[in-house]
Simulated assay, not measured.
Amino acid sequence: MSRIIFECWYCQQEILCEFTGEPVVGEYNGRTSIIQVKVQCPNSEQTAIRVSTGEVLSTIAIPSPWP
């Protein structure tokens, strides 16, 4: 399991995301490509970030770790 802390592109809410697994390889326009999983912001309900992983386990809004 891995974790990442990031800020939503739309509302600047800080988010803690836990994920696991290896990136999934698919096909795009006839070429091999890594499929990115969309992570939805719990505040704005928009796609906050995309990660190259197998599965997103949890997405939690947190107080800002940055001053």
Rank of each mutant, 00 (worst) to 15 (best):
T53W: 01
V56F: 00
I49G: 04
G54Q: 07
I34V: 15
N43I: 13
S64I: 07
P23W: 07
I34L: 11
M1A: 09
E14L: 06
P42V: 08
T59W: 01
G21Y: 10
I62E: 04
P65M: 07
V51M: 11
T20G: 05
L16N: 04
Q40P: 12
S64C: 12
V51L: 15
E18C: 03
G21V: 05
C11T: 05
I49K: 12
Q36R: 15
S58C: 03
V51H: 04
T32N: 06
T20H: 03
G21T: 02
E7R: 15
A61L: 11
L16V: 07
I15V: 10
E7T: 15
C11Q: 00
E18S: 07
P63H: 11
I15L: 11
R3P: 00
Q40L: 11
I5N: 05
G26D: 04
E55R: 12
Q46I: 06
E55S: 12
I49E: 11
V37W: 02
C8P: 01
Q12H: 15
Q36N: 13
V56M: 03
A48F: 05
C41W: 00
S33M: 11
T53H: 05
C41Q: 01
V25D: 01
E22I: 13
A48H: 07
T20I: 10
C11M: 02
L57D: 05
N43Q: 10
E18K: 01
G54Y: 08
W9P: 01
C11G: 00
R3W: 05
S58R: 02
I15A: 00
W66I: 13
K38F: 07
Y10D: 10
I34N: 12
I62D: 06
Q36L: 14
V39C: 07
S58F: 11
T47M: 09
T59H: 04
R50H: 08
G30R: 00
I49S: 01
V56W: 00
E7W: 05
V39M: 05
L16H: 01
Q36T: 15
W9E: 13
C41V: 04
R31H: 12
V39R: 01
V25E: 09
P42W: 04
P23F: 11
